[in-house]
Amino acid sequence: MKITLRAGEKVYINGAILCADRKVSLEFLNDVTFLLESHVLQADETTTPLRQLYYAAQIMLINPLIRNEANITFKRMLANLLATFENPLMLKELKLIDEIVCNDRVFEALKAIRLLYPLEAQILSGTLETTHPTHSDQPNRPEAIA
């Protein structure tokens, strides 16, 4: 896998944070866990329940030393969300995210959580229509591709 970083951009690789001083391309020749800076949520940005869940999942990727603790926190938060949300589509997607994480595909879970942000915003603002979801309403989940 090959990634390109702009000058000043960071990448989180197996618990290390690398910052490029100029445009650079990196090619990973083996399996690594990484997140680009643009996908990393800062603690002060965890303003909604899904963003808090995302933050717990990202910690599993970027800080391997506390992966187990982050996983426990993620599971606790997910259980709370499943008990709180009533929207059938949200519940279905959260259960799929749980399955993705259980299969150790945390990066894919992050993508799936990000796809739910608009639905969460509608639920939290009370602007969600109460019609039953159709096939086209379903988020484009990464695991559906694999």
Rank of each mutant, 00 (worst) to 15 (best):
S38I: 10
S38G: 08
S38L: 07
S38N: 12
H39L: 12
H39Y: 12
H39W: 09
V40K: 08
V40L: 11
Q42W: 11
Q42Y: 11
Q42P: 04
A43D: 12
A43W: 08
E45T: 00
E45Q: 15
E45Y: 02
E45G: 01
T46E: 09
T46M: 06
T46C: 15
T46P: 01
T47I: 13
T48F: 00
P49L: 02
P49Y: 03
P49N: 04
P49I: 03
R51T: 06
R51H: 10
R51V: 03
Q52D: 02
Q52Y: 01
Q52I: 00
Q52F: 00
Q52L: 02
L53M: 09
L53H: 06
Y54G: 01
Y55K: 04
A56C: 13
A57C: 13
A57M: 07
A57T: 10
I59D: 09
I59W: 11
I59H: 12
M60Q: 15
L61C: 14
I62A: 04
I62T: 12
I62F: 10
N63I: 10
P64W: 10
P64A: 11
L65P: 04
I66Q: 15
R67P: 07
N68I: 15
E69Y: 13
E69D: 15
A70K: 09
N71E: 15
N71S: 13
N71K: 14
I72N: 08
I72S: 06
F74V: 04
F74I: 03
F74K: 03
K75H: 06
R76C: 05
R76T: 15
R76Q: 15
M77Q: 13
M77K: 12
M77G: 13
M77H: 09
M77W: 04
L78A: 00
L78C: 00
A79G: 02
A79R: 12
N80V: 02
N80P: 00
L81P: 00
L82E: 10
L82K: 08
A83V: 02
A83R: 11
A83T: 06
T84Q: 02
T84C: 01
F85R: 01
F85K: 00
E86M: 03
N87G: 03
L89R: 10
L91T: 08
K92F: 08
E93M: 13
L94P: 00
K95G: 00
I97K: 04
I97M: 02
D98K: 14
E99Q: 14
I100Y: 07
I100G: 02
V101W: 08
V101F: 08
V101T: 07
C102N: 14
R105N: 14
V106P: 11
F107H: 13
F107Y: 14
E108W: 13
E108S: 13
E108Y: 13
A109P: 05
L110P: 03
L110N: 07
L110W: 07
K111V: 10
A112S: 15
A112K: 05
I113N: 01
I113M: 04
I113S: 01
L115K: 12
L116K: 08
L116T: 06
L116G: 04
Y117P: 01
Y117D: 05
P118A: 06
L119D: 05
E120R: 01
A121M: 09
A121F: 09
A121C: 05
Q122S: 11
Q122H: 09
I123W: 03
I123S: 00
I123P: 00
L124K: 09
L124I: 05
S125T: 14
S125C: 07
S125F: 05
S125A: 15
G126W: 09
